[in-house]
Amino acid sequence: MSGEVPLRERVRRELLERISDGRLRPGDRLFEQELAGEFGVSRVPVREAIRMLQSEGLVEVAPHRRGVFVRSLDRHQVEELFDVREALEALAARLAATRASAADVERLGALAAQARDALARGDVDTMSRANTEFHDGVVALSGNELLASVLEPLHGRLAWLFRLNLEPERVCREHAELHTAIAGGEPDRAAELALAHVRASRDMVLTRMAF
């Protein structure tokens, strides 16, 4: 694990990916020594990475349990996350529709198609990954680095919830509609679709989790 990217950031990115794709689930414990050995680094960058994830709300220190754990979310916290997503993802879609190049739009469409193809094959992991990358892609096309930095930890905190997706057909259909609006340079339509998509996902998650 060498190169220009600091070790702590490399470890952070790997742990974030594991939280996002479900390899690390809410309530799982993180052991510094084990992670240091796995990554081939000292415990210092692992400890720093964990602190970064803690500041992003992805892990929590539980003194009574004597350890660091992937954070669980209660209903109020999930509601708060979706409140923020509604505003920011609508903004991201609006900006993407005004700034995306033809090549950008083509890459976004490829992700939507990949998710649909995976759904048809019953490949849930590939579908979930493509759908997550689609959301990340819309944010990237917004061209707003601050917006991307704010949304990244939110996506990490919610990605494991989306693996509980009970409505994959709807998600794929709505992504296709959003891609069409962005490709057509329709900012108002794109924002409207993004907002409706996040609200539908909110309903799905809250129903699925049955707090």
Rank of each mutant, 00 (worst) to 15 (best):
Q33L: 11
A210M: 11
T132C: 08
V138P: 03
V46W: 04
L91Q: 07
L111D: 00
R202D: 02
L108P: 00
A130W: 05
A92W: 01
R51W: 09
V205D: 00
A210S: 15
A113F: 06
R99P: 00
A62E: 15
A36S: 08
R99C: 00
A176H: 08
E38H: 13
L166N: 09
G27V: 03
R170M: 00
F31G: 09
G3T: 06
E177P: 04
H155Q: 08
V59T: 03
Q77V: 08
R116F: 10
V41S: 03
G109N: 10
V124I: 14
F69H: 05
P45S: 06
L161Y: 13
G122N: 09
R99Y: 03
V46F: 06
V11M: 02
R99M: 04
E152L: 10
H155G: 14
R66A: 09
R129F: 09
L158I: 06
R202T: 08
H135I: 07
E4R: 15
A115P: 02
A181M: 01
E186Y: 05
G57I: 03
G57D: 03
R8S: 12
L16R: 03
L15Q: 03
S142T: 00
F39W: 03
Q54G: 11
E133Q: 08
V139I: 15
M127I: 13
P26S: 07
T98H: 06
R129C: 04
A92V: 04
E86F: 11
Q77A: 14
H64W: 14
L30N: 12
L16P: 05
T132K: 13
L53A: 09
G22K: 12
L81R: 08
A112W: 01
V41T: 13
R189H: 11
G156C: 04
N144H: 13
F39H: 07
A190H: 02
I19T: 01
V171Y: 02
P26K: 05
A159Y: 05
R10M: 07
I182Y: 05
D123Q: 10
